[in-house]
């Protein structure tokens, strides 16, 4: 994808999107006493559940590892990106409907709404990841060059989410059932991705189908980099890079074709 149109798009809309993201956090916790502290409380509680409940109390162990925290970390490493990915798609899907009152009254660029939801989830993700990083650092995790891959893996994940989200957001306006359908699909998709379990426990036939799951290489890369101290599978990542950008391009084109109808239908 050419860089210029993106730059042109962001020019002037940058502040707008940033303000929307800021608003999103204020809005979400508006009227609550702890306010945006909740953005930190949630990931802390989640991490506590993964590590303490699953790892310590339930005694779940990662196959081939005797370390007590290993499963909890495995779970957190898969779940945090997945949550970000799934929330991005879910919120993007309904963003036009949610912001209907604004869209039908003020001139507002619809793509910036799509982008703002994505960025808002990115912020949540970064907070969660920082908390995890602190935990890992306390547990003697060593900084190593493999971590350099993480931002790119994350970027791919959000590009994929943006592509899917653009597609579903556009179509949901005409076909409202899609919002529910997306929820159902995300739920199934979650269990079809090795996040709470390891890929090795799957029967060989299912494992073959797993190759068609575009989130699998993303989550697997996280797990490889952080848990298994390994490198991501480069050729799959390359393939995914092309595919996710292509999907985003197609989704955006479709959105442009239907934009007039989207605005009418709201």
């Amino acid at each position: 994808m050419n860089v210029n149109p993106i730059k042109r798009f962001l020019k002037g809309r940058g502040t707008f999107i940033a303000e929307l993201v800021r608003r999103d956090f204020v809005e979400r916790f508006a009227g609550s006493i702890l306010g945006s502290m909740w953005a930190f409380i949630w990931p802390l509680v989640n991490l506590f559940v993964y590590i303490v409940i699953f790892g310590k109390l339930m005694g779940a162990r990662l196959p081939g590892s005797s370390e007590i925290n290993a499963y909890g970390i495995y779970l957190a490493v898969g779940l945090i990106p997945w949550t970000c990915f799934a929330n991005t798609i879910a919120r993007t899907t309904s963003v036009f409907l949610d912001k209907k009152s604004v869209i039908s009254k003020v001139q507002i660029s619809l793509p910036s709404l799509l982008l703002f939801v994505n960025l808002s989830e990115v912020v949540t993700y970064i907070i969660s990841m920082l908390i995890l990083a602190v935990f890992l650092a306390c547990n003697g995790f060593e900084i190593n060059p493999r971590l350099i891959y993480l931002p790119f893996i994350f970027y791919l994940q959000q590009i994929l989410a943006l592509g899917i989200g653009t597609l579903t957001a556009t179509l949901t306006v005409f076909f409202r059932d899609l919002k529910e359908l997306v929820g159902v699909i995300m739920q199934l998709w979650f269990w079809f991705t090795p996040i709470v379990y390891v890929a090795d426990i799957l029967p060989p036939t299912v494992k073959k189908i797993l190759l068609f799951n575009p989130v699998f290489p993303i989550i697997e890369s996280y797990q490889r980099i952080i848990v298994f101290k390994d490198l991501p599978e480069t050729h799959i990542i390359l393939w995914l890079t092309v595919a996710s950008h292509l999907l985003l391009l197609v989704a955006y084109k479709l959105f442009r074709i239907l934009e007039k109808d989207v605005r009418d239908a709201l």
């Binding site: 303000e19 929307l20 003020v106 001139q107």
Partner: peptide, 12 residues
């Protein structure tokens, strides 16, 4: 006011 002005393209 802030929210609405942002829609109108004003900076903070």
């Amino acid at each position: 006011i802030f929210l609405n002005s942002t829609y109108a393209g004003l900076t903070r």
